[in-house]
Protein backbone atom coordinates (compact mmCIF):
# COMPACT_ATOMS: atom_id res chain seq x y z
CA UNK A 1 0.00 0.00 0.00
CA UNK A 2 2.76 2.44 0.89
CA UNK A 3 4.49 1.67 -2.41
CA UNK A 4 1.34 2.49 -4.36
CA UNK A 5 0.74 5.64 -2.34
CA UNK A 6 4.27 6.84 -2.98
CA UNK A 7 4.17 6.07 -6.67
CA UNK A 8 0.84 7.79 -7.22
CA UNK A 9 1.92 10.83 -5.29
CA UNK A 10 5.11 11.18 -7.28
CA UNK A 11 3.25 10.58 -10.53
CA UNK A 12 1.03 13.60 -9.75
CA UNK A 13 4.17 15.66 -9.88
CA UNK A 14 5.71 14.08 -12.95
CA UNK A 15 2.58 14.86 -14.97
CA UNK A 16 0.86 18.23 -15.35
CA UNK A 17 -2.23 17.00 -13.49
CA UNK A 18 -0.86 17.66 -10.02
CA UNK A 19 0.26 21.14 -10.94
CA UNK A 20 -3.00 22.02 -12.68
CA UNK A 21 -4.90 20.82 -9.63
CA UNK A 22 -2.76 22.87 -7.26
CA UNK A 23 -2.84 25.95 -9.49
CA UNK A 24 -6.63 25.95 -9.80
CA UNK A 25 -7.05 25.28 -6.11
CA UNK A 26 -4.63 28.01 -5.07
CA UNK A 27 -6.09 30.50 -7.52
CA UNK A 28 -9.66 30.17 -6.27
CA UNK A 29 -8.82 29.83 -2.61
CA UNK A 30 -6.59 32.87 -3.03
CA UNK A 31 -9.43 34.76 -4.64
CA UNK A 32 -11.79 33.85 -1.81
CA UNK A 33 -9.15 34.75 0.75
CA UNK A 34 -8.65 38.11 -0.93
CA UNK A 35 -12.33 38.87 -0.50
CA UNK A 36 -12.06 37.86 3.16
CA UNK A 37 -9.22 40.33 3.59
CA UNK A 38 -11.11 42.91 1.56
CA UNK A 39 -14.15 42.70 3.80
CA UNK A 40 -11.96 43.32 6.81
CA UNK A 41 -12.88 40.24 8.83
CA UNK A 42 -11.07 37.32 10.39
CA UNK A 43 -13.88 34.94 9.51
CA UNK A 44 -12.23 32.49 7.12
CA UNK A 45 -15.50 30.59 6.51
CA UNK A 46 -16.10 32.27 3.17
CA UNK A 47 -12.97 30.64 1.75
CA UNK A 48 -14.23 27.19 2.61
CA UNK A 49 -17.84 27.62 1.56
CA UNK A 50 -16.62 28.96 -1.76
CA UNK A 51 -14.27 26.00 -2.19
CA UNK A 52 -17.19 23.57 -2.23
CA UNK A 53 -18.05 24.31 -5.85
CA UNK A 54 -14.41 24.48 -6.90
CA UNK A 55 -13.72 21.10 -5.35
CA UNK A 56 -16.54 19.48 -7.25
CA UNK A 57 -14.80 20.50 -10.44
CA UNK A 58 -11.21 19.71 -9.63
CA UNK A 59 -11.43 16.50 -7.62
CA UNK A 60 -12.12 14.49 -10.81
CA UNK A 61 -8.70 15.72 -12.00
CA UNK A 62 -7.13 13.82 -9.13
CA UNK A 63 -9.12 10.64 -9.49
CA UNK A 64 -9.77 10.24 -13.21
CA UNK A 65 -6.67 8.28 -14.08
CA UNK A 66 -6.06 6.48 -10.81
CA UNK A 67 -7.52 3.15 -11.88
CA UNK A 68 -8.61 3.69 -15.48
CA UNK A 69 -5.05 4.29 -16.64
CA UNK A 70 -3.77 1.16 -14.88
CA UNK A 71 -6.25 -0.90 -16.80
CA UNK A 72 -5.44 0.77 -20.09
CA UNK A 73 -1.66 0.47 -19.74
CA UNK A 74 -2.09 -3.09 -18.41
CA UNK A 75 -0.11 -2.15 -15.34
CA UNK A 76 -2.99 -3.50 -13.29
CA UNK A 77 -1.49 -6.89 -14.10
CA UNK A 78 1.50 -5.92 -12.02
CA UNK A 79 -0.57 -4.62 -9.12
CA UNK A 80 -3.05 -7.49 -9.07
CA UNK A 81 -0.38 -10.17 -9.26
CA UNK A 82 1.75 -8.55 -6.57
CA UNK A 83 1.35 -9.70 -2.98
CA UNK A 84 -0.98 -6.80 -2.18
CA UNK A 85 -4.64 -7.12 -1.24
CA UNK A 86 -7.25 -5.31 -3.28
CA UNK A 87 -8.14 -3.24 -0.24
CA UNK A 88 -4.49 -2.25 0.12
CA UNK A 89 -4.39 -1.31 -3.54
CA UNK A 90 -7.54 0.83 -3.38
CA UNK A 91 -6.49 2.44 -0.10
CA UNK A 92 -3.09 3.28 -1.58
CA UNK A 93 -4.76 5.05 -4.49
CA UNK A 94 -7.31 6.75 -2.26
CA UNK A 95 -4.75 7.99 0.23
CA UNK A 96 -2.49 9.27 -2.55
CA UNK A 97 -5.30 11.45 -3.88
CA UNK A 98 -6.20 12.49 -0.34
CA UNK A 99 -2.58 13.45 0.37
CA UNK A 100 -2.48 15.53 -2.77
CA UNK A 101 -5.69 17.19 -1.68
CA UNK A 102 -4.28 17.79 1.79
CA UNK A 103 -1.22 19.43 0.23
CA UNK A 104 -3.53 21.80 -1.60
CA UNK A 105 -5.66 22.39 1.47
CA UNK A 106 -2.64 23.18 3.63
CA UNK A 107 -2.52 26.62 2.02
CA UNK A 108 -5.53 27.56 4.14
CA UNK A 109 -3.36 27.19 7.24
CA UNK A 110 -1.18 29.94 5.78
CA UNK A 111 -4.29 32.07 5.28
CA UNK A 112 -5.30 31.53 8.88
CA UNK A 113 -1.84 32.55 10.06
CA UNK A 114 -1.97 35.68 7.92
CA UNK A 115 -5.29 36.53 9.51
CA UNK A 116 -3.80 35.87 12.92
CA UNK A 117 -1.31 38.60 12.09
CA UNK A 118 -4.14 41.13 12.08
CA UNK A 119 -6.34 39.79 14.82
CA UNK A 120 -6.91 36.41 16.41
CA UNK A 121 -9.43 34.38 14.37
CA UNK A 122 -11.75 31.91 16.04
CA UNK A 123 -9.37 28.98 15.98
CA UNK A 124 -12.00 26.34 16.58
CA UNK A 125 -13.92 27.52 13.53
CA UNK A 126 -10.74 27.47 11.45
CA UNK A 127 -9.88 23.95 12.59
CA UNK A 128 -13.47 22.82 12.07
CA UNK A 129 -13.42 24.25 8.56
CA UNK A 130 -10.19 22.52 7.59
CA UNK A 131 -11.42 19.27 9.09
CA UNK A 132 -14.72 19.62 7.24
CA UNK A 133 -12.97 20.30 3.95
CA UNK A 134 -10.84 17.18 4.46
CA UNK A 135 -13.94 15.08 5.10
CA UNK A 136 -15.68 16.45 2.03
CA UNK A 137 -12.56 15.80 -0.03
CA UNK A 138 -12.33 12.21 1.19
CA UNK A 139 -15.94 11.57 0.21
CA UNK A 140 -15.57 13.16 -3.23
CA UNK A 141 -12.28 11.39 -3.94
CA UNK A 142 -13.77 8.00 -3.11
CA UNK A 143 -16.64 8.69 -5.52
CA UNK A 144 -14.19 9.71 -8.25
CA UNK A 145 -12.03 6.66 -7.59
CA UNK A 146 -15.06 4.42 -7.88
CA UNK A 147 -15.98 5.92 -11.25
CA UNK A 148 -12.37 5.58 -12.39
CA UNK A 149 -12.45 1.88 -11.56
CA UNK A 150 -15.32 1.27 -13.94
CA UNK A 151 -13.71 2.40 -17.18
CA UNK A 152 -10.34 2.20 -18.86
CA UNK A 153 -10.66 5.61 -20.45
CA UNK A 154 -9.65 8.48 -18.23
CA UNK A 155 -11.74 10.96 -20.19
CA UNK A 156 -14.86 8.90 -19.55
CA UNK A 157 -13.88 8.68 -15.91
CA UNK A 158 -13.46 12.46 -15.79
CA UNK A 159 -16.73 13.24 -17.56
CA UNK A 160 -18.59 10.65 -15.49
CA UNK A 161 -17.18 12.15 -12.31
CA UNK A 162 -18.10 15.67 -13.43
CA UNK A 163 -21.66 14.54 -14.06
CA UNK A 164 -21.91 13.01 -10.59
CA UNK A 165 -20.31 16.08 -9.02
CA UNK A 166 -22.74 18.38 -10.83
CA UNK A 167 -25.56 16.25 -9.54
CA UNK A 168 -24.20 16.55 -6.01
CA UNK A 169 -24.03 20.32 -6.48
CA UNK A 170 -27.58 20.61 -7.73
CA UNK A 171 -29.11 17.93 -5.54
CA UNK A 172 -30.79 20.45 -3.24
CA UNK A 173 -32.36 22.48 -6.02
CA UNK A 174 -33.55 19.29 -7.72
CA UNK A 175 -35.23 18.31 -4.50
CA UNK A 176 -37.29 21.47 -4.40
CA UNK A 177 -38.21 21.25 -8.08
CA UNK A 178 -39.80 17.80 -7.89
CA UNK A 179 -43.60 17.55 -8.21
CA UNK A 180 -45.53 16.76 -5.05
CA UNK A 181 -46.08 13.15 -6.07
CA UNK A 182 -42.34 12.56 -5.87
CA UNK A 183 -41.80 14.44 -2.68
CA UNK A 184 -40.31 11.33 -1.08
CA UNK A 185 -37.51 11.48 -3.66
CA UNK A 186 -37.02 15.10 -2.69
CA UNK A 187 -36.77 14.15 0.96
CA UNK A 188 -34.26 11.46 0.08
CA UNK A 189 -32.14 13.85 -1.97
CA UNK A 190 -32.22 16.45 0.75
CA UNK A 191 -31.19 13.95 3.36
CA UNK A 192 -28.21 13.03 1.17
CA UNK A 193 -27.27 16.65 0.56
CA UNK A 194 -23.55 17.29 0.62
CA UNK A 195 -24.01 21.04 0.51
CA UNK A 196 -26.20 21.44 3.61
CA UNK A 197 -23.90 19.27 5.64
CA UNK A 198 -20.77 20.97 4.44
CA UNK A 199 -22.22 24.44 5.02
CA UNK A 200 -23.04 23.34 8.53
CA UNK A 201 -19.41 22.31 9.04
CA UNK A 202 -18.10 25.63 7.72
CA UNK A 203 -20.15 27.52 10.29
CA UNK A 204 -18.17 25.69 12.95
CA UNK A 205 -20.81 23.17 14.01
CA UNK A 206 -19.17 19.79 14.39
CA UNK A 207 -22.08 17.40 14.22
CA UNK A 208 -21.22 13.73 14.70
CA UNK A 209 -23.91 12.82 12.18
CA UNK A 210 -22.29 15.00 9.54
CA UNK A 211 -18.86 13.54 10.19
CA UNK A 212 -20.29 10.04 9.98
CA UNK A 213 -22.05 10.88 6.74
CA UNK A 214 -18.89 11.88 4.92
CA UNK A 215 -16.87 9.04 6.42
CA UNK A 216 -19.58 6.58 5.40
CA UNK A 217 -19.65 7.88 1.84
CA UNK A 218 -15.89 7.42 1.63
CA UNK A 219 -16.03 3.91 3.11
CA UNK A 220 -18.95 2.81 0.95
CA UNK A 221 -17.40 3.99 -2.31
CA UNK A 222 -13.97 2.60 -1.50
CA UNK A 223 -15.66 -0.69 -0.70
CA UNK A 224 -17.54 -0.56 -4.00
CA UNK A 225 -14.27 0.12 -5.82
CA UNK A 226 -12.76 -3.00 -4.27
CA UNK A 227 -15.82 -4.94 -5.40
CA UNK A 228 -15.50 -3.63 -8.95
CA UNK A 229 -11.88 -4.79 -9.10
CA UNK A 230 -12.82 -8.12 -7.57
CA UNK A 231 -15.67 -8.60 -10.00
CA UNK A 232 -13.38 -7.94 -12.95
CA UNK A 233 -11.30 -10.99 -12.08
CA UNK A 234 -14.33 -13.22 -11.92
CA UNK A 235 -16.07 -12.17 -15.09
Amino acid sequence: MMAILKRELSSYFTSPIGYVFLAVFYFFSGLFFYSVLYSNTTDITYVFSGLFTVLLFIVPLLTMRLLSEEKKQKTDQLLLTAPVSLTGLVMGKFLAALCMYAIALSVTVVYALILAGFASPEWMVVIGNIFGALLLGAALISIGLFISSMTENQMIAAVGSFAVMMFILMMDSFATMLPAAFSFVGTLLQSLSFMTRYTELTTGILNIGTVLFFVSVAVVFNFLTVRVLEKRRWS
Partner: peptide
Protein backbone atom coordinates in the same frame (compact mmCIF):
# COMPACT_ATOMS: atom_id res chain seq x y z
CA UNK B 1 5.22 -12.62 -13.67
CA UNK B 2 6.02 -11.09 -17.01
CA UNK B 3 2.69 -10.63 -18.81
CA UNK B 4 2.31 -10.42 -22.56
CA UNK B 5 2.51 -6.63 -22.38
CA UNK B 6 5.15 -5.72 -19.82
CA UNK B 7 3.30 -3.74 -17.13
CA UNK B 8 5.47 -0.63 -17.20
CA UNK B 9 4.73 2.87 -16.01
CA UNK B 10 5.99 4.77 -19.00
CA UNK B 11 6.58 8.02 -17.15
CA UNK B 12 9.00 6.52 -14.62
Amino acid sequence: YLPEHPPLYLDM
